[in-house]
Design a protein around this nucleic acid. Structure first.
Lengths: 224, 224
DNA sequence: GACGCTACAGTACTAAGTACGAAAACGCCA
DNA sequence: TGGCGTTTTCGTACTTAGTACTGTAGCGTC
């Protein structure tokens, strides 16, 4: 009864580790990481739950795998180019990727076995900084700072209940109505005089911090 | 048979929402957030599972509650003092708290209903920045940057498999042995020439980034 | 054409969240 | 002191999810 490999109705291609992981990303993107269960994943793939266990040992391996997939989506900086624009490009790309896959941020906390894409990513970034003339110690400083900022920003962004210009307004408003101006005057000020203004996009804050960090790092570099 | 309130052996005081939440924090600190189940929490409290549901509606409410408890542990900056030292103190305290309760970082991502301690914290920090002379817009920039850095650093710190001086060495070494110097030369360089050096404490990187950020923000402030 | 390998599926056990309702303890008053 | 409503705790049972163990269909090989 069941469809077999290479059979007439070409719908179901063969399963593979790759397809399992991509399916898991699709489920997590669509319904959140909480909705990613072996059963929901199997349904996404059009197979029965236990079939996915042929390609992965357990759910943890799936989680490790999709974190590495996400890392693979981040643009690599090339050690050859101008370090500032390369590092900026990487940061912007990382932020965009983590916005697409917000569940990945929290996952990175619990996973400890880095995959190949993750290692390649770190190596390329370190290489770009070293190539720019930063010492080993200064590279460690810079990398810790940059990544803390990028991940931290993504973390905040994902925990905000809005995304994109103007969408902040409605949500902030409904929250602002519930907190008293006496107890939290500065919160109210920030909301009414800034966030609730039309055209405000919280995501724009990213550029400010990134620019400030890159400027300061550049200033610490000996003149070329 | 069971011990009751005010009975002879004074061990079991009455349950309360407060005790439930503190118990949850204790379990999460000791065994990780993954080990926090209604059953494990009940055991911690010396009661049966369903008893905790008298004080909280569901597990989500517990999670919201303990995030707010953690926020309450962070030292509040006082708007009266020198803004730089106040903001620095808050950042250092926040980092310390998140190191004590690493599970809180990931939780903050999923929780969206801020508790009173959380609101008070944000309000005090905003107030300190405004009092220092930053405009509303600049305060938003500064706060986004500072918090991204603090949370991001804590996030990285928690995902590193080591904590404290020198402990980095063993772990890094075991990992470094598994990755080839040809494929990841800069990763190897960083490990051998920096992280593996005796006395190295990754946590020290925090001060560098924090100082850099505070310096840059101070530079943007009009002279007093 | 028996054997074994690959790929998938069925059954069933366990852990965890929690709805529902019983029951124990307590306070209050007659 | 005994009855009664309220507060607090607990027992039972249903549901979802991870996964161990086992079965089986297709296919290649000698």
């Amino acid at each position: 009864m069941s469809k077999r490999v290479g059979e007439t109705s070409g719908a179901r291609t063969q399963l593979s580790r790759e397809r399992v992981l991509r399916g898991a990303v699709a489920v997590a993107d669509r319904d959140g990481i909480g909705a990613l269960t072996i059963r929901s994943l199997a349904q996404e793939l059009g197979v029965k739950p236990m079939s996915v266990y042929y390609y992965v040992a357990n759910k943890d391996e799936i989680l490790d795998g999709i974190v590495d997939l996400v890392f693979g989506e981040i643009e690599l900086p090339s050690p050859g180019g101008d370090w500032r624009s390369e590092i900026r490009r990487r940061a912007v790309s990382a932020r965009a990727v983590l916005r697409r896959h917000p569940w990945a941020i929290a996952l990175m906390e619990s996973r400890t076995t880095p995959g190949p894409a993750t290692l390649r990513h770190h190596d390329a970034t370190l290489g770009t900084l070293r190539g720019a003339g930063f010492s080993v110690g200064m590279t460690a400083h810079a990398y810790a700072l940059l990544d803390a900022y990028v991940y931290g920003f993504a973390l905040q962004e994902s925990s905000l209940p809005f995304a994109g210009p103007d969408t902040a307004a409605e949500v902030t408003e409904s929250i602002a109505q519930q907190i008293s101006a006496e107890d939290y005057p500065h919160l109210i000020e920030m909301a009414t005089e800034h966030v609730l203004r039309p055209g405000y996009d919280w995501g724009d804050e990213f550029e400010f911090g990134l620019g400030l960090i890159l400027d300061s790092l550049a200033a610490s570099l000996p003149e070329a």
